[in-house]
Protein backbone atom coordinates (compact mmCIF):
# COMPACT_ATOMS: atom_id res chain seq x y z
CA UNK A 1 0.00 0.00 0.00
CA UNK A 2 1.28 3.46 -0.88
CA UNK A 3 0.39 7.12 -0.77
CA UNK A 4 0.71 9.75 -3.47
CA UNK A 5 0.68 13.33 -2.21
CA UNK A 6 0.04 16.39 -4.38
CA UNK A 7 2.05 19.13 -2.68
CA UNK A 8 0.16 22.03 -4.26
CA UNK A 9 -3.25 20.68 -3.27
CA UNK A 10 -2.66 19.70 0.31
CA UNK A 11 -4.56 21.26 3.22
CA UNK A 12 -3.79 21.44 6.89
CA UNK A 13 -6.92 19.46 7.75
CA UNK A 14 -5.30 16.10 6.95
CA UNK A 15 -3.28 16.59 10.10
CA UNK A 16 -6.45 17.27 12.12
CA UNK A 17 -8.22 14.24 10.62
CA UNK A 18 -5.30 12.01 11.52
CA UNK A 19 -5.22 13.34 15.08
CA UNK A 20 -8.96 12.83 15.52
CA UNK A 21 -9.10 9.40 13.90
CA UNK A 22 -6.21 7.95 15.90
CA UNK A 23 -6.59 9.89 19.16
CA UNK A 24 -3.07 11.22 18.81
CA UNK A 25 -2.14 13.14 21.98
CA UNK A 26 -1.12 16.79 22.02
CA UNK A 27 2.56 17.35 21.24
CA UNK A 28 3.07 14.41 18.88
CA UNK A 29 1.92 13.72 15.31
CA UNK A 30 1.49 10.76 13.02
CA UNK A 31 1.19 13.17 10.13
CA UNK A 32 3.10 16.40 10.24
CA UNK A 33 2.13 19.20 7.87
CA UNK A 34 4.99 21.48 6.96
CA UNK A 35 4.27 25.05 5.91
CA UNK A 36 6.28 26.34 2.96
CA UNK A 37 6.16 30.00 2.03
CA UNK A 38 7.52 31.05 -1.34
CA UNK A 39 8.03 34.30 -3.24
CA UNK A 40 8.48 37.87 -2.09
CA UNK A 41 5.77 40.12 -0.71
CA UNK A 42 3.21 40.80 -2.11
CA UNK A 43 3.62 37.88 -4.53
CA UNK A 44 3.78 35.12 -1.98
CA UNK A 45 2.21 31.70 -1.81
CA UNK A 46 1.90 29.15 0.92
CA UNK A 47 2.13 25.43 0.28
CA UNK A 48 1.85 22.49 2.60
CA UNK A 49 3.75 19.27 2.67
CA UNK A 50 2.86 16.09 4.47
CA UNK A 51 5.53 14.12 6.28
CA UNK A 52 4.81 10.76 7.79
CA UNK A 53 5.85 7.13 7.90
CA UNK A 54 6.94 6.08 4.40
CA UNK A 55 5.92 2.41 4.85
CA UNK A 56 9.31 1.49 3.42
CA UNK A 57 9.87 -1.76 1.56
CA UNK A 58 13.08 -2.23 3.51
CA UNK A 59 11.98 -0.60 6.76
CA UNK A 60 14.89 -0.11 9.21
CA UNK A 61 12.44 0.23 12.12
CA UNK A 62 11.30 -3.37 11.58
CA UNK A 63 14.86 -4.66 11.45
CA UNK A 64 15.86 -2.94 14.67
CA UNK A 65 12.71 -3.60 16.74
CA UNK A 66 13.65 -6.27 19.30
CA UNK A 67 10.10 -7.41 19.99
CA UNK A 68 8.77 -7.33 16.42
CA UNK A 69 6.22 -4.80 17.64
CA UNK A 70 6.78 -3.08 14.30
CA UNK A 71 5.97 -5.36 11.44
CA UNK A 72 4.98 -5.39 7.79
CA UNK A 73 1.52 -6.63 6.98
CA UNK A 74 0.93 -8.76 3.88
CA UNK A 75 -0.57 -5.69 2.18
CA UNK A 76 2.67 -3.72 2.73
CA UNK A 77 1.51 -1.50 5.59
CA UNK A 78 4.17 -1.05 8.28
CA UNK A 79 2.01 -1.45 11.38
CA UNK A 80 2.78 -1.58 15.08
CA UNK A 81 1.51 -3.55 18.04
CA UNK A 82 1.68 -1.51 21.22
CA UNK A 83 0.95 -4.62 23.28
CA UNK A 84 4.42 -5.89 22.37
CA UNK A 85 6.40 -2.61 22.34
CA UNK A 86 8.87 -2.16 25.22
CA UNK A 87 9.54 1.47 24.18
CA UNK A 88 13.30 1.00 23.84
CA UNK A 89 13.23 3.88 21.32
CA UNK A 90 15.51 2.04 18.86
CA UNK A 91 12.99 2.58 16.08
CA UNK A 92 12.92 6.35 16.63
CA UNK A 93 16.68 6.40 16.07
CA UNK A 94 16.61 3.97 13.16
CA UNK A 95 13.95 5.78 11.11
CA UNK A 96 15.62 8.22 8.69
CA UNK A 97 12.34 10.14 8.38
CA UNK A 98 11.82 10.81 12.11
CA UNK A 99 8.33 9.43 11.65
CA UNK A 100 8.10 7.45 14.89
CA UNK A 101 7.37 8.95 18.29
CA UNK A 102 6.78 7.70 21.80
CA UNK A 103 3.14 8.15 22.73
CA UNK A 104 3.05 10.13 25.99
CA UNK A 105 -0.09 8.28 27.11
CA UNK A 106 0.70 4.65 26.28
CA UNK A 107 4.50 5.09 26.62
CA UNK A 108 4.99 2.98 23.50
CA UNK A 109 6.11 3.74 19.96
CA UNK A 110 3.51 4.95 17.47
CA UNK A 111 3.38 6.26 13.92
CA UNK A 112 1.18 6.44 10.82
CA UNK A 113 -0.16 2.95 10.23
CA UNK A 114 -2.12 3.84 7.10
CA UNK A 115 -5.26 3.74 9.26
CA UNK A 116 -4.98 -0.05 9.16
CA UNK A 117 -8.16 -0.43 11.20
CA UNK A 118 -10.05 1.39 8.44
CA UNK A 119 -8.33 -0.46 5.60
CA UNK A 120 -9.30 -3.77 7.23
CA UNK A 121 -12.98 -2.91 6.84
CA UNK A 122 -12.63 -1.58 3.31
CA UNK A 123 -12.33 2.11 4.13
CA UNK A 124 -9.66 4.55 3.06
CA UNK A 125 -7.32 6.28 5.53
CA UNK A 126 -8.81 9.30 7.34
CA UNK A 127 -6.46 11.79 5.67
CA UNK A 128 -7.57 10.59 2.24
CA UNK A 129 -11.27 10.84 3.03
CA UNK A 130 -11.10 14.27 4.61
CA UNK A 131 -9.17 16.04 1.87
CA UNK A 132 -11.56 17.96 -0.45
CA UNK A 133 -8.94 18.37 -3.19
CA UNK A 134 -7.94 14.71 -3.28
CA UNK A 135 -4.40 15.75 -2.49
CA UNK A 136 -3.67 12.38 -0.93
CA UNK A 137 -4.29 9.24 -2.94
CA UNK A 138 -3.97 5.87 -1.27
CA UNK A 139 -3.92 2.51 -2.95
CA UNK A 140 -2.12 -0.56 -4.12
CA UNK A 141 0.83 -0.03 -6.44
CA UNK A 142 0.84 -3.71 -7.33
CA UNK A 143 -2.53 -3.23 -9.00
CA UNK A 144 -1.69 -1.74 -12.45
CA UNK A 145 -5.16 -0.30 -13.00
CA UNK A 146 -5.38 1.44 -9.63
CA UNK A 147 -5.42 5.23 -9.59
CA UNK A 148 -2.21 5.38 -7.58
CA UNK A 149 -0.34 3.16 -10.05
CA UNK A 150 -1.37 5.39 -12.90
CA UNK A 151 -0.38 8.53 -11.02
CA UNK A 152 3.07 7.17 -10.19
CA UNK A 153 3.57 5.93 -13.73
CA UNK A 154 2.34 9.12 -15.40
CA UNK A 155 3.88 11.85 -13.27
CA UNK A 156 7.24 13.09 -12.15
CA UNK A 157 7.21 11.77 -8.59
CA UNK A 158 9.78 11.97 -5.89
CA UNK A 159 10.35 10.45 -2.48
CA UNK A 160 12.11 11.57 0.69
CA UNK A 161 15.75 10.53 1.21
CA UNK A 162 15.87 7.94 -1.58
CA UNK A 163 19.61 7.61 -1.07
CA UNK A 164 18.99 5.75 2.19
CA UNK A 165 17.87 2.71 0.24
CA UNK A 166 14.74 2.10 2.31
CA UNK A 167 12.48 2.22 -0.80
CA UNK A 168 9.81 4.53 0.62
CA UNK A 169 6.18 4.16 -0.46
CA UNK A 170 5.05 7.77 -0.08
CA UNK A 171 5.40 9.55 -3.43
CA UNK A 172 5.19 13.31 -3.90
CA UNK A 173 4.01 15.17 -6.98
CA UNK A 174 5.04 18.79 -7.69
CA UNK A 175 7.47 18.74 -4.82
CA UNK A 176 10.85 20.33 -4.29
CA UNK A 177 13.51 20.16 -1.63
CA UNK A 178 11.77 22.72 0.53
CA UNK A 179 8.71 20.53 0.71
CA UNK A 180 10.51 17.24 1.22
CA UNK A 181 13.14 18.07 3.80
CA UNK A 182 11.95 19.38 7.19
CA UNK A 183 14.42 22.26 7.33
CA UNK A 184 14.69 22.74 3.59
CA UNK A 185 18.19 21.35 3.18
CA UNK A 186 19.31 19.89 -0.11
CA UNK A 187 18.04 16.41 -0.79
CA UNK A 188 21.52 15.11 -1.50
CA UNK A 189 24.98 16.45 -0.87
CA UNK A 190 26.51 18.68 -3.52
CA UNK A 191 29.81 16.82 -3.32
CA UNK A 192 28.26 13.58 -4.50
CA UNK A 193 27.04 15.27 -7.65
CA UNK A 194 23.72 13.45 -7.45
CA UNK A 195 20.93 15.84 -8.42
CA UNK A 196 17.33 15.50 -7.36
CA UNK A 197 16.13 14.54 -10.83
CA UNK A 198 18.73 11.79 -11.11
CA UNK A 199 17.69 10.51 -7.72
CA UNK A 200 14.05 10.41 -8.78
CA UNK A 201 14.85 8.62 -12.02
CA UNK A 202 16.84 6.06 -10.15
CA UNK A 203 13.99 5.47 -7.70
CA UNK A 204 11.49 5.03 -10.51
CA UNK A 205 13.85 2.70 -12.34
CA UNK A 206 14.32 0.67 -9.22
CA UNK A 207 10.61 0.58 -8.55
CA UNK A 208 9.86 -0.59 -12.09
CA UNK A 209 12.52 -3.24 -11.76
CA UNK A 210 10.86 -4.53 -8.58
CA UNK A 211 7.48 -4.62 -10.31
CA UNK A 212 8.89 -6.58 -13.21
CA UNK A 213 10.31 -9.12 -10.81
CA UNK A 214 6.95 -9.44 -9.06
CA UNK A 215 5.10 -9.88 -12.34
Amino acid sequence: MSFVIFIKRIFHRVYVACKAENDVPVGVNRTWVKYIEKGEFPHTKRFFSVMRCNHCEDAPCITICPTSALYKRPDGIVDFNNERCIACKSCTQACPYDAIYIDPETHTAAKCNYCAHRVDVGLKPACVIVCPTEAIVAGDLDDPISKISQLVAGNQVTVRKPEKGTIPNVFYIESDNASLVPNGFLLVDKESGVTSSRVVQAVKKKFQFKKRVKN
Binding site: H12, Y15, G27, V28, N29, W32, V33, K34, Y35, R46, M51, P96, D98, A99, Y101, K161, V181, P182, N183, F185, L186, D189
Partner: peptide, 17 residues
Amino acid sequence: KAPLTVIPQLNQIPFGG
Protein backbone atom coordinates in the same frame (compact mmCIF):
# COMPACT_ATOMS: atom_id res chain seq x y z
CA LYS B 1 21.37 12.31 11.48
CA ALA B 2 22.35 12.49 7.85
CA PRO B 3 21.43 14.83 6.32
CA LEU B 4 20.90 17.10 9.28
CA THR B 5 17.18 17.36 9.85
CA VAL B 6 14.94 18.82 12.47
CA ILE B 7 12.71 16.26 14.12
CA PRO B 8 9.22 17.06 12.78
CA GLN B 9 7.65 16.64 16.20
CA LEU B 10 9.87 19.44 17.50
CA ASN B 11 8.86 21.91 14.82
CA GLN B 12 6.26 24.38 15.88
CA ILE B 13 3.27 24.45 13.61
CA PRO B 14 2.19 28.05 13.06
CA PHE B 15 -1.36 28.96 13.96
CA GLY B 16 -3.80 30.10 11.34
CA GLY B 17 -3.31 29.96 7.59
